[in-house]
């Protein structure tokens, strides 16, 4: 990549005023990584209006991939398309290739229930079931036929979500009595209890305080050893801290239409220090958004 003086300037601006602690550069060759999601020219429509246009992106196994960008830029829409959570929205339509391990997620014959069994999701607001802590974890494995060693499975999931020590003495009490941060970790534990392949995290920390946020970020580093993680976040620093690769989405306003576009997708360190696109640079330096 050609480094002009202007680029170097921008890079130094990034480092100092925001004091972003950028995830260290991985410098892995993408060609050697296993691709989990391969999106090619994906357009998403809600009714007649084009919500997100022309997204092409490869998401790699055991990576944390962050999606950042201003509100309405389509980052959540894209992530929710990855496990077909948008199906229930009337008027939702997706065109282009959306492959998961080589299988088109939107091919006919694909059962969204089966897709979500492999691709779990953690939502913005903690949403534990109004059941006991134990049953929050054990409910889905029971239904999916994973009844053997259920107690161990529950413990493993809670340990995996760094929650075991806090709740092991009150597994039979209501999950709604937990704090927000604990509830969110419970939701993560619930997701990993069925041993998915991918975990999608849609702004998982936006309803949490900084300490709970830090806990979940640490947890993500643990989780990526076993799972592929995709996180949508409003918080650039968070993306910089946790993700190997970051996708920056922006809002393209032309002729009164607002369409989300993928501006840049790169190694996180490079995206934050040497962005290739002016819009990315403006966003990560805090000039807008």
């Amino acid at each position: 990549m050609d480094e002009s003086p202007a680029d170097a300037d921008a890079a130094s601006q990034v480092a100092s005023p925001l004091a972003i602690n950028v995830h260290e550069a991985t410098e892995e060759d993408p060609a050697t990584l296993e691709v989990v999601f391969d999106l090619r020219d994906v357009d998403v429509y809600y009714g007649q209006s084009l919500a997100v246009a022309g997204v092409s992106i490869e998401i790699y196994k055991n990576h944390i991939t962050a999606m950042i960008g201003p509100s309405g830029c389509g980052k959540s829409t894209i992530v929710r398309s990855l496990n077909r959570m948008n199906d229930s929205i009337s008027g939702f339509r997706l065109t282009g290739q959306c492959n998961y391990h080589g299988n088109d997620l939107y091919a006919s014959g694909v059962d969204p229930v089966e897709v979500r069994r492999r691709i779990g999701m953690v939502f913005q607001r903690p949403n534990p079931f109004p059941k006991s802590i134990y049953d929050n974890i054990a409910w889905a494995p029971r239904i999916l036929g994973m009844r053997e060693n259920l107690d161990e499975r529950v413990e493993k999931a809670l340990r995996g979500a760094a929650l075991w020590d806090e709740v092991k003495d009150r597994l039979k009490t209501s999950a709604l009595g937990l704090s927000g941060g604990q509830q969110q970790r419970l939701c993560i534990a619930r997701s990993i209890a069925i041993e998915p392949d991918v975990l999608l995290l849609d702004e998982p920390c936006s309803a949490l305080d900084p300490i709970s946020t830090a806990l979940i970020e640490d947890l993500m580093q643990e989780l990526k050893r076993d799972y592929t993680l995709v996180i949508v976040t409003h918080n650039m620093q968070q993306a910089a801290r946790v993700a190997e690769r970051t996708a920056f989405f922006s809002l393209d306003v032309s002729e009164g239409r607002r369409t989300g576009v993928l501006v840049e997708y790169d190694d996180t360190a490079r995206l934050f220090t040497r962005p290739a696109d002016k819009r990315t640079e403006d966003y990560v330096t805090g000039r807008f958004g």
Binding site: N83, M85, S88, V113, E114, V115, R116, R117, R118, G120, M121, F123, R125, N127, P128, F129, P130, K131, W139, A140, I143, L144, C187, R190, S191, I194
Partner: peptide, 27 residues
């Protein structure tokens, strides 16, 4: 019954009817 609960259940690969019987109706 909040929509978020149904979403959470669907995101675990649980079908609509099982969600209804196991989660929505008890709630």
């Amino acid at each position: 019954v909040p929509k978020e609960l149904r979403d959470a259940s669907h995101a675990l690969g649980i079908s609509r009817w099982r969600t209804t019987v196991g989660l929505t109706i008890p709630s």
